[in-house]
Amino acid sequence: MFKIFKYSFFDLIRSRWTYIYAGFYFLFTLGMLMLSSDLSKVVISSMNVVLILCPLIATMFGVMYYYNSREFTELLLSQPIKRTSIFTGQFLGLATSLSVSLLVGAGIPFLMFGVFGSDQAGNFLVLLFNGVVLSFIFAAISFFIALKNEDKIKGFGLAILVWLLLAVVYDGLLLLGLSWFRDYPLEKASLIASVLNPIDLSRVMLLLKLDISALMSLTGAVYRKFLGSGVGMAISVAVLLIWTIIPTLGIRRVCLRRDF
């Protein structure tokens, strides 16, 4: 598995798209830092971008990479290597290369502007952590979908649909639900709803760190109490890990059963 991971990782890290992806983060973050001297503002702007781009790019890359490396995968399958090692290795290679792009692209400008000397160091690390976890989650989901669907178009469509559901539609439904049931106390319900979606959870974790909780008054207080506590933080991280593990297990299951 490690060999396949190494191969996939170095294959991807040499790819043009990885450079473009990292370069985008680099330029964006650098630009923001040059325009604004306030690090917390830059962390917020980066958060907006990371929370949209990480899942989207991971989804696209995941599907593309699977379909493009199909022939190589078939070649590997004919060798005496365990199936699970092949696919888990490929998935890990993909997710790691995406994470490295993010860490390098967004990390270097912040380091250049001395983030660790400022009070934003914690927020910056939470941002990177969330970016990395989101890359892993969505790479796993897209890999799973691609593995399930022989048809490229169908695979692409489904993967994008899942991204759209989690990134946009989910929030829409949540808002709809909140305004329908606004006569009831909804703090806990909205808390649970946003913990269940990895993108929302990452956003809320960051927003609370960035002190926007004061804007949320009662809701913010409930959130802060939950996420500020050790148990709450543990649950959030656990939810993010579960989101990574379930599609990874799905990849395992499908690759063992599928007839190639």
């Binding site: 829409g172 909140l178 305004s179 606004r182 909205s190 009662l218 809701t219 913010g220």
Partner: peptide
């Protein structure tokens, strides 16, 4: 009208 909706601050939707 729905203060809890503040949870969705800065979301894409």
């Amino acid at each position: 009208s729905t203060p809890e909706a503040m949870v969705l601050l800065r979301s894409l939707f």
